[in-house]
Amino acid sequence: MQIRRLVKSGLSSFTVALPKDWIDKNKLDKGDFLYIDEVDNTLRVSAKSKKEKPERKEIVIHTEGKSQKRIRREIRSAYLDDYYKIYIKGSNIRSMVADIKKDVHDLVSLETIEEAHDKLIARSFLDFSDVSIKDLIRRLDNITRSMMSDSIACIPSYSDEYDTAKIVTERDADINRLAFLVFKILKACVKDINVCKKLDLSYLQVLKYWQLAFTIEKIADEVKRITRFIKQLHEKKVKFNKKALITLYQEVKENYETLMKAFYKKDFVLSDEIYTITPALMKKCEKYFEDNKSVETSEIAGKLKGIVSQSADISKVIRYLN
C-alpha cells in the first residue's frame, strides 16, 4: 500500500500524485484521461474506459489422461472465470462426450455450439445486465422450501409412483445450477468494478450473497440426502416414530424460513432470537435418534442438525454482513 498526501488545488478541488510506476505501466502521459469509479468509501482509478467492450476470453481444456471428474471441475472453473468459449479437446473425447455435454448443460447460459470427433466447443451466452442476484437468491430459497415440503410429505408413506427422492434430487440439480450462476456473477463483480456498478452491488453485498448462496446450496444437499434415507426407511420397513419426525422436520424447516424472512427484512432482532434457540433444536435432533435408533434415523438426525447449523450461518450473514 502506498500513501499519498491530499493537496488543495484551486477553490473547489484537490489533487493527489499517482505512482510513477503505475503511470509507466499503463503508458500514460500528460493530458490522458483517467476513469474514476466510486463504490462505498472507495475510489477506483482506471486507465481504461468502462465503455470498452468486455474481453472475450477463450480457454482450451485437454482431456487426455484425465478422469471425467477432473474434466468437470475444469469446465466449472472456466465457467466461473467467465470464459466466453471453452474448447474441450482430446483423442479420447468420444468415450466421454455424453458426460461432457451434460456438464455443459448443467451450467446456466453455457451451451454446446460445435462438436467433432476430437473436440467440443461450449460458449457462454450470459449477459450480466439480464440477471438479478436478489431474484436468484429468492429462487434458490423457494426451491429449497419446496424440497423440504415434499420431503416431509413422504414421511407417513412413500409412493413408488411419485418417487419423492428422485423429484427432490432433480430440484437439487436446479439448486446447483443456480448456485454456480450466482458464484459466476459475484466472481465477475470482484474482478470488475463495472459489473458491480451494473448490478448495483457493493463489495460487502458480493460477500454477503456469496455466503448466503453457498449456505442455501448446502441446506438443499442435506434435504436431498434426508429424503433418500426416508425412502430407505419405508423400503426396509424400519419402525420409526413418523409423527415425531414430521414435527421435528417441520420445526427445522420453520427455523430456516424464519431466518430467511429475517434476511429479506434485515431484521437483526428476529435473527438473533432464532440463533439463540439453535442449541435446543440440535438437542431435539439428538433426542429423536436416541428414541429411534437405526442407521437411517441416525443419518436423518445428523443431517437435520446440519440444516440447523447451516441456518445459524444465515443468522451470522444477517448480523455481520449488513
Rank of each mutant, 00 (worst) to 15 (best):
Q2F: 13
V7T: 07
K8M: 13
K8V: 12
S9T: 12
S13Q: 06
T15E: 02
V16G: 04
P19Q: 08
K25L: 12
K30F: 12
G31N: 04
F33K: 12
K50E: 15
K50L: 01
K51D: 15
P54S: 05
T63S: 04
R70G: 09
R72M: 13
E74M: 15
I75L: 02
R76P: 01
L80E: 10
K85D: 11
I86E: 01
R94G: 03
S95Y: 13
M96C: 02
D106I: 06
D106T: 05
T112H: 02
E115V: 13
D118M: 08
K119G: 13
A122H: 11
L126K: 08
S132F: 11
S132G: 05
S132L: 09
R138N: 15
R139Y: 10
N142D: 06
S146H: 03
Y162M: 14
T164F: 01
F183R: 01
K187C: 08
V206Y: 07
W210S: 12
L212D: 03
R225P: 09
I230K: 07
Q232M: 14
H234M: 12
V238K: 03
K242E: 13
Y249H: 15
Y256M: 00
Y256K: 00
T258K: 07
L259D: 00
K261W: 11
K265A: 09
F268Q: 12
S271P: 09
S271V: 08
A280M: 14
M282H: 12
N292L: 09
T297H: 02
K303R: 10
K303Q: 09
I307L: 07
A312F: 02
R319L: 07
R319A: 10
R319S: 11
Y320Q: 06
L321C: 02
